[in-house]
Design a protein around this nucleic acid. Structure first.
Lengths: 240, 240
DNA sequence: AAGTGGTCTAGACCACTAA
DNA sequence: TAGTGGTCTAGACCACTTC
């Protein structure tokens, strides 16, 4: 039984989908100023109020940034969007911390079964892998492995350097915006490799975060597994 | 410097605040059908569109539930509101799980320094404490200690039984609605007590969740510390 | 002064529920 | 059939930014 049939999509939703399509297709790029409401309304043949409702929805999804008197901009990976939407580790005393990254290994190989499942890849598909350590206040706190489909990131292996914020890289080099992500968190004992990278003893409890990041069209584009030391840091979140 | 000055509050925001006030004061109670938009608009002397915007905001905050053709209801702690807004532990295979609770101890005593800080209580204030184990699929998975100010929950100690969902109890018996909560999560080693309650060995990595729940007026009303076994379960969340 | 988004209004019509 | 929320429109005015 297929319950995916929308049956009826309100106009503002159709407008929203059409505008998201412009982001997916790359017609609108991060940081860009988009046309004013009244222009979009005329273009699409709907009222300004309907366009507004669509833009408000996209703003709520962190896809746009609106500034009174200036205009509406496509969100970039720096608009507070990524760095605190997708990075939630905080010092216990509340001091603001900036993560730095050190890439340890980069490889390209056939995807494992787990990677294929997470990324919805066919058998024999290949992935790029990045292993890195992230430091907070100079101290290694996160060890993570990132896997992305080779097919969606052609030439990633050839890049000489990787930036701290890979989601900004995905957007700028590959025109790919991460819209949302699903996380699974557990407490596990640090294995040998993790312990060595984090400078703790094997068996130390670490927070394991498995994240699948989804593109704007809903397809998985990145799978990462992180292990975090939480003796002096914690994962902060607000439930509402 | 006090930056709390609102300077200008739009009308729909004032309407929203006035209606939230009805929830705080208990004029509107969980499950109740509230007056239709046009009536509220006439009552408050604003347009129906402005009332709608206020009601939509409250719906987004999970305070109201709107049903086309029927009306707008005050959310209850069962409206999917609590059980999956505030309970995020899931089986790894994705099977739906229902938590059951077994209360182990209930005490009333002077608040510790940590409890006073979390609950913004004066020196010498007293708290009720509840210690319980929660089971998923029959297996003990969460050990937690809950602390609430005695002053806001008079007679809590005298209640013969405590329900599985304490937020529903807070609402029904004490007219207190939890609007949001802040969480801090860590990975720690299970201590003796936790290990005994969860049926694991001391030192096992467990997910520690420290939660402060806030009332609708923003004041802290509950502080809890939970320790979760995550060998067959995980804490699930969506980032967007 | 001109242009943008933000707020507020008034009213029409649609979709759903209940009696 | 009557009453509810849901959608859509058109237009007025306000607040902010830029020139």
């Amino acid at each position: 039984m297929d319950d995916a049939a929308p049956a009826f999509r309100p106009l503002y939703r159709q407008v929203r989908d059409a505008l998201v399509r412009r982001l997916i297709d790359g017609a609108w790029t991060p940081g860009m100023l988009i046309p004013p409401e009244h222009r979009l309304a005329a273009e699409l043949g709907v009222s300004q109020g309907t366009v507004r409702k669509a833009l408000d929805a996209m703003t709520a999804e962190n896809l746009l940034v609106r500034r009174q008197g200036r205009g509406t901009y496509v969100a970039t990976a720096e608009d507070g969007r990524i760095l605190f939407q997708f990075f939630c580790l905080t010092a216990d005393d509340g001091a603001p911390v900036f993560p730095e990254s050190e890439v340890l290994r980069r490889t390209t190989a056939r995807a494992t079964a787990r990677e294929r499942t997470a990324l919805a890849l066919p058998t024999a598909a290949r992935v790029h892998r990045i292993e890195r350590v992230r430091r907070l206040a100079g101290r290694p706190v996160i060890s993570e492995r990132i896997a992305v489909p080779e097919a969606r990131f052609p030439g990633l292996a050839a890049l000489p350097e990787l930036p701290n914020n890979v989601y900004a890289l995905y957007a700028e080099r590959f025109g790919l915006t991460v819209g949302r992500a699903a996380e699974r968190r557990k407490a596990v004992a640090a294995d040998e490799t993790t312990a060595a990278r984090l400078g703790c003893t094997p068996g130390t409890p670490v927070l394991e975060i498995e994240r699948t990041a989804l593109s704007l069209d809903g397809s998985p584009v990145e799978w990462r597994l992180s292990h975090c030391l939480t003796d002096a840091f914690h994962y902060a979140a607000e439930l509402r």
